Computed example of a mutant assay.
Amino acid sequence: MSMTLYSDAVDHYSHAVRIVVAEKDIGVDLVTDSLSKPSAKILEMSPYGDLPVFADRDLVLYQPLIIMEYLDERFPHPPLMPVYPTLRALNRQWVYRVRRDWSQLVDLIQAPSSSDAEKEHGRMRLRESLMSASPIFEEKPFFMSDEFTLVDCCIASILWRLGTIGIQISKTRSPALAQYAKRLFERPSFQQSLTPQEREFPSGFVS
Score class of each variant (00 low, 15 high):
E44M: 10
Q110A: 14
L71F: 05
S174P: 03
V31Y: 02
V83S: 15
T172R: 15
R97D: 13
S193H: 09
Q104T: 06
E139F: 05
S170M: 09
S113Q: 14
L177F: 09
Y84S: 15
D8R: 04
P188T: 10
I26T: 12
T149C: 06
S103I: 02
Y13H: 13
V98G: 08
K171V: 03
L30R: 14
I155F: 04
F143N: 10
P82T: 05
S113A: 13
T149D: 03
A178R: 07
A16C: 10
H12G: 00
N91K: 01
P85C: 05
L194G: 00
L159K: 01
R99V: 10
D33R: 12
T195N: 11
L194T: 05
L65Y: 07
Q63F: 07
Q93A: 15
L65K: 04
H77K: 05
G204E: 06
S129R: 11
E23C: 05
L30I: 14
S129I: 02
D25G: 04
M124C: 10
L150I: 14
K171N: 11
S2I: 12
L5W: 07
E200Q: 15
E23N: 04
A9L: 12
S115V: 10
R92V: 02
M81V: 13
W102P: 01
V31S: 09
M45I: 04
D33Q: 13
V28Y: 07
S132K: 14
A156Y: 01
L51Y: 01
V151L: 09
K171W: 02
D116R: 14
P38K: 04
S115T: 15
V20M: 05
K41I: 08
C153V: 02
W160E: 13
P85V: 06
W94Q: 13
L184F: 09
I67W: 07
F201R: 00
T149M: 12
S34T: 01
K171H: 04
R199L: 11
S113L: 07
S203V: 08
R88F: 05
D116Y: 09
I109V: 14
